[in-house]
Structure formats: structure tokens, C-alpha cells
Nucleic acid binder design. Structure first.
Length: 568
RNA sequence: UGGGGAAUCGUCUAAUGGAAGGACAACGGACUCUGACUCCGUUUAUCUAGGUUCGAAUCCUAGUUCCCCAGCCA
């Protein structure tokens, strides 16, 4: 086998395998057509990102098509705001649905006619039982259900009643249309599932045209069939629904896609259920759906995560039927990996400490050349001003340093990145004894950062020139929850315990930072590395007077880890 | 106590009867004008018990654990 000519093959996860096999046998006439079918009742999160990337990725890989389809079958819950947000998120991920933006509600007429077909075949009936009665008649997990007294109405009567349901003659909840399947089935989904309910409310796209709205199980296969979907990918909890998906399509005798279930992506240190995400937003625990601490796509985008990183993560964790929890560290790592390659570097000081160079010529300023991205020579260089009054990071100075502290301390010499070697000669303290200024001297021979005498220093510090630095607000984020599985109650949980008790009280810290002047022209959405600190992204809250940054993710910090070990 | 799924390093994932491999994490080291990146090395796994086989993560039998299902939500 040749070595270099063979690109690394993508892992043959089971869905890729099924599709590859179908392509080989020509099962769908050489077609692959997938879809992402969100309900517009909330924002998309990282779990949806997996589904989007999987669906679009398979279509793309096999030369097929991908649809975005809103499953807007429940007007009571759905809103245009969510439609708009979802479209933006799907596009941002790079999932190109071209002109195939669809709405389930556009198929309501066709579904209605198909329902009449089932009625005429004696496979569906109108039931007058109340919701409670239906539940009671359904039986339990271990006992079969009983037939509704209305189960054997004639097709003619059912047709009349169903048409009058749609005509608005009956109140909400008074009747439903049910499929006539098997009240004794061990699969509860097959015990005469409801196909339509009366909901005399306006639909966000259809207005008042409909008084009956289809249920998921009835609608979904129809939608897939109408669009010519070949592989209908969904999550594990729909496995129990597959027999019903198949039953409806078989009864109708229409195009019948294959439903395939996979395990959804779950992340540690966060929650992903729509209900809980809503609660975080509307309970004001976060600033909104796009709060950078949220696992929503909008939140991740605002925080500075990239689509490439999300794609890499999804490819790395694979696609299986095993329910698993992905360590959020893997996501962060994927983000670092991508940003390391593409993010320009700048210097910024998050917690400024004044450093005065005592032997620096009064008023003198030098422009120093700094590399924009060592991983990408084509990114070039920039000039950064250096002077005798600087800011360095507070944590880069210690008056009484521990062993292996390579940074500045009295008598120690360090390099200021791209600038000069500096030796600490003293400190200035305030009345409380806190160090408020560090004094030092520089070695003029080390301009650019190299000592001609071959002398080495262990530490290199980032810095900004005080007179030239710009101020910025920087938002530092920590995990929203302090527990890897925030929904899991502790052993001694009080009765009123909820996952909100695991909210991390210090997930947000805001600091005033000093940044090198080249950053002044940055625009919202711009991403960059602050050297030695992490990756940062300009936030939309920025004003002409003040840039606001979100810390996307820190750099790996083995020194911090070392210290944590010492502290423990 | 019905039905449907799933069990492989700490985590995620390969293997399709023929040497249990990779990624992340952890640990140790090299390199370094970012304690970053990169590179090298180390530790750690087939749910259990039987069986078939020259050979089992894979096949068979019995069991165990976990997840999903009793919405007029999707």
C-alpha cells in the first residue's frame, strides 16, 4: 500500500456504512437525500449541531442533497423568531440547503388528503374520548389497552366527522383522529396513535386555515416522503416510533425512506434539554439564548467557537448507538486546535501591573516587529510600540516566588516578548503592602528578544505600552455548571433540589484590560489570540468607545496545573 | 413484572472469527522568544458466567447493568 497517496479515510461509522452500501447496490437509484427537521420552538444547541453536520455531511460526501425543514406542526408552541435564528445557525455551520428550505405546514393539505385515504380504508377513525380516557384505555406497559367505543365507526361517519373537525365545528380537544392499528401491541406507539388533534389557533405561517393539526408520528414520515428523503436520521428515542413510521408509509403506499437512529451528543458540565435551556434564558440565569456560556449554537458563535471546530468534534466523537457523554474539554480542545492555526496573535494584559524601566530614555518610544501567527507565516508581522512605562500581567510577578516560577521577581531577569530582557530591581507598594508597581532595568543589547552573549532566560512575558494601550472590557467565562452531570441529583439531595443548584456562581468575570493599539480596529466577531492567555472574540456589545471581548477558551496552562497540584 | 435499544482504557471510538488500535485526558521527557504549538515515551479496556472453535470483543446459552416508551409534545 502506498503511504503518502492515501488520505486518511474517515471512520466508517454505521450510518456511513449503510449509505455506502445503498450507493453500491443502487437502492435509491444512486440518490442520497437527508434533512434536518427542527421544531421552531427554541434555539439550536451543540446536540443539533451534530445532527446537522451528520445529515449535511452524509449528503455532501455522497453527492446528495440536504433539506432544512421546519417541523411546524404545533402552532401553540412555535414562533418566527426561532425560525430566523435556526436558519442563521444552520448556515453558519456551513450546511448548505441551497433553495430547499421547507415547512411541514406547507404539506398540511396533502397530509389531510392522505388522512382521508386512511379513513376510507378503515384504517383511521374519529374518537370522542377525552384525553384522560384515551390514556386510560391505552393500558399500561404490562397490560394491553382496550378499544375505544368509537373505534368501529363507519368510514363515512369518520370522514364526515373529520371534515367537520377541520371545519371548526368542534371545540379544542373534543375529538381526535386516530390510526386503527392494535390496542394490544406491546409497543405503546401502535395502540391507535393520535393522528390529528383539534387546535383552533392560528399558525405562524398558515394563519387560520387549519383547525386540525397533525401529530409528529403521522406528519414526519409524510414530510420525508414528500421530499424524497432517502435516509431519515434521528435520535435514539425515536427507535420505538419506527414501526409506526413504517406503518403509515406502507398504508399509504408512498415513497418510504429508511429511518435510522443514532445517539445524540451530550456534553458534560451543561444541560441541553430545551426546557432547561428555556429556563436558563427566561429565568435570567444567563443574558439570553446567545449568552456565550450557553451550549447553543448562537452562544458558541458569540463566544468565538468556529464551525470548523464543531465539525472536527463531531468527526472525532463518531456516530454510534451508544449513549455517551462527551467531555466538554474535547469541544474546547477542538476550538483551540482550529484557532491555533488561524487566529492572529496580539498582546493584551487582563490584570495590569505597572512596570517601569528605570534606564529607558525619557519619552523614547520604539516600534518593535511582532509575528502575527507563528503557525502561518503568510499572516506577516506588525509593529507594536514599546516604551519605559508598561503593563504586565499581575500573575507574572511574585515578590516571593515558588520554585520553577520562571517569571518576574526581585532580581530575576525575563524577556518581554519581541522586546528586551528586563531585570527586576524593586517594587512599589501601597499602604496595605500590595505591590502596585514593579521597577526594572532593560538590556539595550537584547532588542528583539535575543541576547548576543547567548544568555538564556526561562520566562517570556507579554506586555503593552501604557501610553499606547487601549482599554477594553473582557468577559472571562467558566463553565455554567460546576458539576459534570448537572442534572444528576446528589445522594443527599433535599426535596426541592434542581439542576439549578449546580449553577456555577462564578461562571462570568468581567475585567478591564489593556490591549496593544493594533487591536483598536477589530470588529465584532473577530477572533484573536492574546498571547499566553487564550483566544478571544470581539463581542457585539462593543461600542465605538469601548471594545468588548469574550474569552473563547484559555490556552493550555501547565503552570496553572502545576500550581493547582501544589495547592491540593 | 411488556416492548425496544446499548454495554471495549478515566472519556469517546476502532475491530465485521486471526496480534485489542486511535483520539482526548493523565503522567514523564524533549523543544520553545507564547509554561502555547510540536515531538517522544508511559499507564490504563473487551459487563459476568458458561459453551463452540486451532483461535472469540466478535458466534451460542444464561445472567447483570444502563437508556427509551403509557403527550391531544417533537
Amino acid at each position: 500500500m502506498s503511504d503518502s497517496a492515501t488520505p486518511p479515510a474517515k471512520p466508517m461509522h454505521f450510518i456511513r456504512q449503510i449509505i455506502a452500501e445503498d450507493m453500491k447496490t443502487g437502492r435509491w437509484g444512486g440518490r442520497v437525500h437527508t434533512r434536518f427537521p427542527p421544531e421552531p420552538n427554541g434555539y439550536l444547541h451543540v446536540g443539533h449541531a451534530k445532527s446537522i453536520i451528520l445529515n449535511y455531511g452524509m449528503a455532501k460526501e455522497f453527492g446528495g442533497k440536504f433539506n432544512l425543514r421546519f417541523d411546524d406542526t404545533n402552532p401553540a408552541k412555535e414562533e418566527q423568531e426561532y425560525v430566523d435564528a435556526i436558519i442563521e445557525d444552520v448556515r453558519w455551520l456551513g450546511a448548505d440547503f441551497e433553495d430547499r428550505l421547507f415547512y411541514a405546514s406547507d404539506y398540511f393539505q396533502q397530509m389531510y388528503e392522505w388522512a382521508l385515504v386512511l379513513i376510507d380504508k378503515g384504517k383511521a377513525y374519529v374518537d370522542d374520548l377525552t384525553a384522560d380516557q384515551i390514556r386510560e384505555y391505552r393500558g399500561t406497559l404490562t397490560e394491553p389497552g382496550r378499544p375505544s367505543p368509537y373505534r368501529d365507526r363507519s368510514p363515512a361517519e369518520n370522514r364526515d366527522l373529520f371534515e367537520r373537525m377541520q371545519a371548526g365545528e368542534f371545540p379544542d380537544g373534543s375529538r381526535v383522529l386516530r390510526a386503527k392499528i392494535d390496542m394490544a401491541s406491546p409497543n405503546l406507539n401502535l395502540r391507535d396513535p393520535v393522528m390529528y388533534r383539534i387546535l383552533r389557533v392560528p399558525h405562524h405561517r398558515q394563519g387560520r386555515k387549519w383547525n386540525v393539526y397533525p401529530m409528529y408520528d403521522w406528519a414526519h414520515g409524510n414530510e420525508d416522503s414528500i421530499e424524497g428523503i432517502t435516509h431519515s436520521l434521528c435520535t435514539l428515542e425515536f427507535e420505538n416510533h419506527r414501526p409506526l413510521y413504517d406503518w403509515f408509509l406502507d398504508q399509504l403506499g408512498i415513497h418510504h425512506p429508511q429511518q435510522i437512529e443514532f445517539a445524540k451528543l451530550v456534553l458534560s458540565y451543561t444541560v441541553l434539554s430545551k426546557r432547561k435551556l428555556r429556563e436558563l434564558v427566561f429565568g435570567r440565569y444567563v443574558s439570553g439564548w446567545d449568552d456565550p456560556r450557553m451550549p447553543t449554537i448562537a452562544g458558541m458563535r458569540r463566544r468565538g467557537y468556529t464551525p470548523e471546530a464543531l465539525w472536527a468534534l463531531v468527526e472525532e466523537v463518531g456516530v454510534t448507538k451508544v449513549e455517551s457523554v462527551i467531555d466538554v474539554g474535547r469541544l474546547e480542545n477542538a476550538v483551540r486546535n482550529h484557532l491555533n492555526r488561524v487566529a492572529p496573535r496580539v498582546m493584551g494584559v487582563l490584570r495590569p501591573l505597572k512596570l517601569t524601566i528605570e534606564n529607558w530614555p525619557e519619552g523614547h518610544v520604539e516600534m518593535l516587529e511582532c509575528v502575527n501567527n507563528p503557525e502561518d507565516p503568510s499572516a506577516g508581522t506588525r509593529q507594536v510600540p514599546f516604551s519605559g512605562t508598561l503593563y504586565i500581567e499581575q500573575e507574572d510577578f511574585m515578590e516571593n516566588p515558588p520554585k520553577k516560577f520562571f517569571r518576574l521577581s526581585p532580581g530575576a531577569e525575563v524577556r518581554l516578548r519581541y522586546a528586551y530582557f528586563v531585570k527586576c530591581t524593586g517594587v512599589v507598594k501601597d499602604a496595605s503592602g500590595k505591590v502596585i508597581e514593579v521597577k526594572g532595568t532593560y538590556d539595550p543589547a537584547t532588542r528583539g528578544g535575543d541576547a548576543p552573549d547567548g544568555r538564556k532566560v526561562k520566562g517570556t512575558l507579554h506586555w503593552v505600552s501604557a501610553a499606547h494601550a487601549i482599554d477594553a472590557e473582557v468577559r472571562l467565562f467558566d463553565r455554567l455548571f460546576s458539576h459534570p452531570e448537572p442534572e444528576k441529583p446528589p445522594k443527599d439531595a433535599p426535596p426541592d433540589w434542581t439542576y439549578l443548584h449546580n449553577l456555577n456562581p462564578s461562571s462570568l468575570e468581567v475585567v478591564r484590560a489593556k490591549l496593544e493599539p493594533s487591536v483598536a480596529s477589530a470588529k465584532p466577531g473577530d477572533r484573536m489570540q492574546f498571547e499566553r492567555l487564550g483566544y478571544f472574540c470581539v463581542d457585539k456589545d462593543s461600542t465605538p468607545d469601548l471594545l468588548v471581548f469574550n474569552r473563547t477558551v484559555t490556552l493550555k496552562d501547565t503552570w496553572a496545573k502545576e500550581q493547582a497540584k501544589g495547592a491540593a
